[in-house]
Design a protein around this nucleic acid. Sequence first.
DNA 1: TTATTAATTTATAATAATTATAAATTGATA
DNA 2: TATCAATTTATAATTATTATAAATTAATAA
Lengths: 138, 138
Amino acid sequence: MIKKLKKLGLKLTPQRLAILNLLEGNTKHPSAEEIYKQLKPQYPSLSLATVYNTLEVLARAGELQEIRINADKRHFDPNPAPHTHFLCRICESVHDLDAGPIEIQAPYNINGYLVEEFTLYFYGICPGCLERERSKNQ
Amino acid sequence: MIKKLKKLGLKLTPQRLAILNLLEGNTKHPSAEEIYKQLKPQYPSLSLATVYNTLEVLARAGELQEIRINADKRHFDPNPAPHTHFLCRICESVHDLDAGPIEIQAPYNINGYLVEEFTLYFYGICPGCLERERSKNQ
DNA sequence: TTATTAATTTATAATAATTATAAATTGATA
DNA sequence: TATCAATTTATAATTATTATAAATTAATAA
C-alpha cells in the first residue's frame, strides 16, 4: 500500500496513511464525513478537506472506488473492483451485494454510444431492518 | 393526464399543467432548473420551488421518474417505466439507452436483502460528442 | 544533518442543488 | 359566491462538496 502511494508519486503523509488504514478491509462503505469523524479524535488537526482530497486522489489512482448510490452523499469502498451495491432505504447503510454474473463489459459501443463504465445499484431493505420491521409488526 | 391528476386528488393548477405539458413526449430528460427556465417566460410568476414540488408529487404518483445518473443534479423523464439511461461525460446530456433485455425483476430477495428497485446507468461519450472529437483530431 | 522546495494540509469561504418556511393566493366544493 | 384546504411564491436554510490561499511538511540533495 505504501509502495503504491510512492509508485504514484504521492507523498506519504500521516493523514493519507490513516485514511488508508481506516478503509483497509472496511466493509461499511463510509462517507467522507464518517471517515473524518472517526479519525478526528486521533488526528485533531485533520481537516475535512484533506479527507476529500485524499479520497479523490486515491479514487483517481484506482485504489478505491466512489459509490454514488445515495443521492445525498458519496460513499467509499476500499475494493476498487467493479461489483454491485445495495442501499437500505430505512437505515441508509450501504452493502456489497453479489447479484450473480453481470454480462456488461465496458468499454463497448451500443447504438453509437461509447459506454466506458456503468453502475448497477440496488435499493430496498437490508436484513437487519427487515428483522426490526418484523418484530414491530407482531 | 388531467384525469390522472384528479384521480390522485391533486388540484389542477396552471403550473402543473405547464410542467406536464413540457415533459409530455420530451426525450431530453431536463433538470428542474431547465424546466423552470423554459417555463418562466410564459409563466412569470413561476417559482423554482413549485417546479420541485410538482416533480416530487408527480414522481411519487408514478407519473414520471427521477433520474439520478448525474451526481450534481436530478433529471426527469416523463416515461415512468423502468429503462436504462446514459450520461455523456462531455456534454452532460442524458439519453435513453436500450441495453437489451435486463433480467432483473424487482422486488425480489437476494441474500436476505429485499430488493425493491434498482438503477442501471451507463457513462461515456454520446454520438454527437464522439463525432465532434473525431473532427477535432483530424 | 540541514536547506530547499514542491506537495500537502488546513481553516475557511464559496458553490450549488435541494428543502423548509410562512405568508399570500387559488382551485374545488357546497 | 363564500369557504377552506391545497398550492404557490419568495426567500432563507441546509448540506455535501469544491475552491482558495496561507501555513506546514515530506522528500530530496548538498
